[in-house]
Design a protein around this nucleic acid. Sequence first.
DNA 1: GACTGAACTATACC
DNA 2: ACGGGTATAGTTCAGTC
Length: 820
Amino acid sequence: MQTKINFIPIDYDYFDYQGKNYIKIIGRTDKNKKVCIIDTCDVYIWAIMQPDTPEKRIKQIQTKINQIQIKKKTRTAHVIKTEIHDKNFLGKKYKAIKIFINNNKDAKDIVEELHYKEIYKRREHDLNFITKYILEKKVKPLNWYKVEGELLNNSEDFGNLDASIDLKTCIKTESIQPLEKPFEFKPKILAYDIETDEFEIGKGKIVMISLVGEDFQKVLTWKKQSNKKYVETFKDEEEMLEAFVKYTKKYNPDILAGYFSDGFDLPYLKARADKNKIKLNLGIDNSQPTFSRGRMLTGKINGIVHLDIFRFIRSVYSQYLQSETLSLNDVASELLGQEKVEWEHKHSSKIKSKEWENYFKYNLQDSVLAYKLTEKILPDILEFTKIIQEPLFNVSRDSMATQVENYIIHHLEKFNEIAEKRPYSNEIGKRRAEEKYKGAFVFQPTPGLYEDITFFDFTSMYGSVIVTHNLSLSTYSAKKIKDSIEVDLENQKAYFIKQKGFFPQMLNKFIEKRKQYKKEYAEKKDAHSKARSNSFKLLANAAYGYQGFFGARYYCLPAAAATAALARKHIMEAIDTIEKQNHKVIYSDTDSIAFTSNKKSNTQIQKLLKDINEKLPGIMELDYEGSFKRGIWVTKRTGDFGAKKKYALIDKENKLKIRGFETVRRDWCNLARQTQNKILQLILQTGKPDKAKEYLKKTVKELKQRKIPLKQLIIKTQLKKPIDEYKSINPHVTIAKRMKQQNIPVSIGTLIEYYIAEPETTKHKLVRERAKLPTEPGKYDINYYLKNQILPAVENILEVFDIKVEELIEGKKQMCLGDF
DNA sequence: GACTGAACTATACC
DNA sequence: ACGGGTATAGTTCAGTC
């Protein structure tokens, strides 16, 4: 039966039928019905010919290629047809043979057969079928289409595929066309979270599972009855798991969302289902979740987008967050102003009767937070997906380098470009061994208190340098050529042609779109333009790092080095100009310049800015960032010159802006951070050290009298690698080892908490020998906190006023005397 | 065993 | 392995006397 629908693609999957690749797209109709469409497309790879190859020879090779056949287990890999095209590769023109093959999985085998010396490069064999389908048919995720085709109803097509899918509508696509007027699409989200007895995947039983959707809240358990309406109690773990599947299917979400659910909740559920010998058949085809092992476990469910929002937050969103960790509690607290319910984890056998209600509440709240976080961040993820044009499942997990790369691949057509290949591991090894290049310029500040400070900064500094000077792989030349610019690198020169390359052109678009949507958002204040503005800002910022990243298809170290070199040149020239106008430049780092305003009026400052901008080339632009009534720069702890990347400012509204100081470092105890913060505040507000000095005295006294609670003295340090890989056993590693012994879960990324206690014997000299878990009894070491936390945090600040903090603290001397 | 510089480690800035 | 380089600062390690 022929049918016609309006359709928005959400999740892409593929399968083979009779040796050919097919795409299976799950999406919604304008009537909000979940449907499936099946389609296919041509699959091809490219053989790029050497420039001087005679046409006759190309034809000969073409004929040979047409005959390629490779016998494989289930099919014969073969070439269907070939065509000769004029294409670009890295900006240069070539003749290229377009080789159509029967199955994308054979691409690499076919490529192996293309061993003619006239073939310069073989390309696009490393693109997966879903990417190729989206490129070829232009059926982009989250865009609306009019689909026409045959409604499959127990059809023998595709081996009865439609019957195995839990959907009424499954269409064999005959035509698919973009819709001019899109419908609204609001994905249905279901969030979930589990509580378990053990932390190791599958080890202990799952105690409860919470599910939260729109007007839907459930906690499923088998442990305990509850009078709460949302709690449903089952006979055992098996029944609870079955109910989880049943409720999820009934809710029929587009997105099943969790927080760290790739690494914990979903694999745990699967492991317990296996243990109970039942199927966790969440898939639309009743399949179970599948897990791909990469650097991180990734859980996929057929027909539902499994979304681990932690992954998107970590790889894309975290740069805009202030929170010290990316734990659900910290992130929810920052983005939603809501926190987890308080609950100390324990084995279910040790939970007291009256504690259960709180445990249920805790479990439910985690799903509530995951749901709300998803709602909050989803506009950004969806917008990103539309821009990058890869499936939502991938975009929500990919690193920024991959996002940039996927954007490029999906926008090469306009440039008639064949995609460059992904580097092989030997190539990656070579790239990683390459010497680092010189990076940003950082101004050496003179320590002191400064009044009336103005900040300028370059908008999208590196991005605008790349665009202005056309720095990329396809525009680069190691040798001097005509119509190129020369860039001085440390030991060599690099040349870049003037004819615009595709990479700088795409980047230019990022910067323009960012400007456009930022302006639009300022006027309309709507989520859509905000999400768009964010997306292009992220892409613009990531483009520079991408060209220097060893895993990139369009890796170009000279371009990255030239970007940094030209950025240094531009900022130093700007500093020069500002100084020539009799301003004292205090500081500068990469793309910003701070200088004393010299009581000049706003108009005069704006004039200075305009003068500099008039001389800047291309799209380079210096911007007014802000002004501050006072700021402080201090010396390094070793040496008497000014420390870089460390300063504090106060604006006219008495708002502090602190960079680099211990105040903003999470691996310092709260007492040191808060004391330093207060001292900076008092000094910057008054311009004098008196009040700060008094405050310090008071704090020191309290510490000496042991009036400071232990909580203020906890030091937090993150475990960055497996415990046994550490060459140097620092305090947090010692504590991590002890936690492991006590069966407290520790892994890479865990924030280890400890405090420094008084030495038990004089033999305990190393800090790690005195480090204790917050739960371990002991007296905190007052001398340690005075000498190693408070003193270093405030010493250099008060030194600006010639105050010797050591004498103020007196702790240092006492300890030395007392020791002997 | 005390001292010292190098190595290792974590975290911040842009 | 899954953006880049620049910078500060603590603790441990390994060598010297």
